[in-house]
Nucleic acid binder design. Structure first.
Length: 552
RNA sequence: GCGCCUGUAGCUCAGCUGGAUAGAGCAACGGACUUCUAAUCCGUAGGUCGCAGGUUCGAAUCCUGCCAGGCGCGCCA
């Protein structure tokens, strides 16, 4: 908010300079207000003079001195404005300005950091979308946590969010699942059965078979149809997935079944539309989509010569349907193995007359699993993967969330099983939560001593003059913009790093300064600072789905 | 062969989309609890930002070319 104020003033002087013919508006929109790394360079700086100088062959330092002179007149905001280096203009903000951020933080409380920039835009966040063939793996865990944190950030910034899980229970995978279940069922009944070569070997299939036996005895032994097995397996696995997600405090608004697209004729309709537009044609008994019209190297099959559609077709139909349902923005969280489908889907919706900029795909890289220093290949079919549930037995939901969120989506994530337990004790999530708990503890101590916070307008916030205090106040002031940036960038990891940094500042401060001291005025000011910090820790933790415990 | 992602301290990762002297957490070493929670703090050490060019006032960040790892490139999903 202080940054915005400076930007506004800067814009004003820039435009005045243009009107007065001091420079052209060539640099419009390219200059920025930045946060210098070193305190000796002020609280904010701008590169405007250098950009003007570079474009117009003017001496940047001359432009800078002009600018500095004008900015320096805002004595309510700045204690000092100076020129540095090749032409930076550095702004030193008055302590009182920083101290005053406590007011908005405490007034807005748990709403601090939330905003309306999303303008109630309807966003559909699609994530997990794993077919129900087995428990959620660590890879799914990353996606679940990432998608949920993104959804929360979008909610916090005034978007109307729907969380959706898209699945297909009709394909080959599911038939194999049914056959695997039947084989285990027969095996448990000692009726002998051949286990399908590419069947699902996980222990959970036995569990499902056992349930089937306890419910139906051996009444299914002569059934030729795999449907009852498939349906039971699907139902059990879905229940398990939902439970796992619930343990992570992740809930979906919708489970969207691919099959319903066929039932509603939406898949056929896409083919018809594409044919109408001359973007689909028959060749070798299959139906092809002219993806070459959309910059791809080759056309793609959408209906096989057997008459079955390829995965692309329902995917396109699904995205079109999402847009028809009135969403303004589709955010898809996909694993990197889905890279190839993205251009096809985007081409599809463009072909159908929609703007593909309404779709944003967050591709997250894989989770690689290492055990005793060696990489383990994971496969659902072979059941040699680690499930989110197993992880749960070792560590709690906050550790899991934090672990997955501490990397940006683009990075591969190495999961070291040997460190999992260790992580549970040393995970930095506790470092942040501990800061929150300590702040709460200070407040409880104050209550015990019968010290109440006086109304803010009666408190001398000027007492908060230590560099550590001012730095924390600056962090508090930057929080709302951080939430906006993280949301629009779909980058929850930025919140995590902010929290770790702020926690570091606070713990250090805590160890060398008392909040509750013999100086009543100072105590009042610091209690308000503590409250503002607590609010921001709480909000930051919650906005990415972490808990904010008051005691630890 | 082609496309996308990654390469930063011993390890795991940030680096606010081009800024000034590159950061954090682990791991290592040495210290700090009669004061609001030691799940904490303080200090020491650790770097050719994969390599080589280029763009400009200025590059870990942008462009090109190599090198290495991951994921894809089906009438599989």
């Amino acid at each position: 908010m202080i940054k915005e104020q400076i930007k506004d003033i800067l814009d004003k002087y820039f435009n005045e300079g243009v009107e007065q013919g001091l420079w052209t508006n060539a640099a419009a929109g390219s200059y920025a207000v930045e946060l210098p790394k070193h305190t000796s360079h002020g609280d904010f700086s701008t590169n405007m003079a250098m950009l003007i100088g570079g474009r117009e062959k003017k001496n940047p330092r001359e432009v800078a001195s002009l600018l500095a002179e004008q900015m320096g007149t805002h004595i309510d905001l700045f204690s000092k404005v100076e020129i540095a280096g090749p032409g930076f203009v550095n702004f030193f903000v008055r302590d009182a300005v920083w101290q005053s951020v406590i007011k908005p933080v405490c007034e807005k409380a748990y709403g601090y950091g939330s905003s309306g920039i999303g303008q109630q835009k309807k966003v559909l966040v699609e994530f997990v979308s794993a077919n129900p063939t087995g428990p959620l793996s660590i890879g799914h865990g990353r996606q679940a946590v990432l998608g949920d944190a993104i959804a929360r950030l979008l909610e916090a910034t005034g978007h109307e969010v729907t969380r959706e899980y898209y699945y297909n229970d009709a394909g080959r995978q599911m038939r194999v699942l049914g056959e695997s279940t039947r084989a285990r069922y027969m095996e448990l009944l000692d009726l002998g059965a051949e286990f399908p070569e590419d069947g699902y070997q996980g222990e959970y299939i036995y569990d499902i078979a056992r349930k089937l036996i306890s419910e139906k005895n051996d009444s299914l032994k002569d059934t030729a149809d795999v449907a009852p097995f498939k349906e039971k397996a699907e139902q059990e696995i879905f229940a398990n997935i939902a439970e796992t997600l619930a343990r992570l405090d992740i809930r979906f608004d919708n489970y969207y079944n691919e099959h319903s697209l066929y039932e509603k004729g939406l898949v056929d309709d896409v083919v018809a539309r594409l044919r109408e537009k001359g973007l689909a044609y028959d060749h070798d008994g299959a139906v092809w989509f002219k993806t070459t019209e959309f910059g791809q190297e080759q056309d793609r099959v959408i209906i096989k010569s057997t008459g079955e559609p390829t995965y692309r077709l329902p995917d396109i139909a699904y995205h079109r349907e999402k847009l028809k349902r009135g969403f303004d923005w589709l955010v898809n969280i996909f694993g990197s193995d889905h890279i190839a489908t993205v251009p096809d889907v985007l081409a599809g919706i463009r072909a159908l007359g929609y703007d593909d900029s309404m779709v944003t795909v967050v591709l997250h890289q894989f989770v690689t699993l290492t055990r005793e220093g060696k990489q383990v290949k994971m496969s659902t079919r072979k059941a040699n993967f680690i499930t989110v549930d197993e992880l749960f037995d070792e560590v709690g939901p906050d550790v899991i969330r934090f672990f997955f969120l501490t990397r940006k989506a683009d990075s591969q994530l190495e999961f070291d099983l040997d460190l999992a337990t260790k992580e549970s004790q040393e995970n930095p999530v506790f470092y942040v939560q501990y800061a929150n708990a300590r702040l709460r503890s200070i407040q409880k101590k104050a209550e015990e001593k019968n010290i109440r916070r006086n109304p803010l307008q009666e408190v001398s916030l000027g007492k908060l003059s230590l560099p550590e205090e001012l730095n924390m106040l600056k962090a508090l002031a930057s929080y709302p913009e951080l939430v906006e940036d993280s949301a629009l960038d779909l980058s929850p990891h930025r919140i995590i790093f902010f929290l770790m940094d702020l926690a570091g500042q606070f713990h250090s401060y805590y160890n060398s300064h008392l909040v509750i001291s013999d100086d009543p005025e100072l105590t009042q000011a610091r209690l308000w600072l503590a409250e503002a910090l607590r609010i921001v820790f709480h909000n930051g933790l919650r906005v990415v789905g972490l808990s904010a415990p008051e005691t630890m």
